[in-house]
């Protein structure tokens, strides 16, 4: 599984990296690298069942109260 994931990730690198370097788009390359690394961290952590911050829980934390408040108003 981990091998497969790595193959996919390096395939993406192989597809996009040469173009970015050839055009000397360093800022684009930096953004690319950050997103790529983030994706790699998330998927590897997922495979090894490491704890991850879950963005949805953050959103739930904000919007659940709104939802409850709304229900109370209308009930």
């Amino acid at each position: 599984m981990i091998l497969l994931v790595l193959v996919v990730f390096f395939l993406v690198l192989w597809l996009e990296l040469p173009k970015l370097i050839r055009q000397r788009w360093w800022w684009e390359l930096a953004v690319f690298a950050v997103i790529w690394a983030l994706a790699l961290v998330v998927s590897v952590a997922q495979i090894y069942d490491l704890p991850l911050p879950n963005p949805t829980h953050g959103l739930e934390y904000i919007f659940k109260p709104v939802s409850h408040w709304f229900e109370e108003v209308l009930s």
């Binding site: 996009e16 788009w25 997103i35 790529w36 994706a39 998330v42 998927s43 997922q46």
Partner: peptide
Amino acid sequence: LKDYKPLVLPMSLLLVSLGIV
């Protein structure tokens, strides 16, 4: 950025893994 295309593939990897998580 000058173009969005370089981000298409890494971002989709991120979205898939986030979708699972």
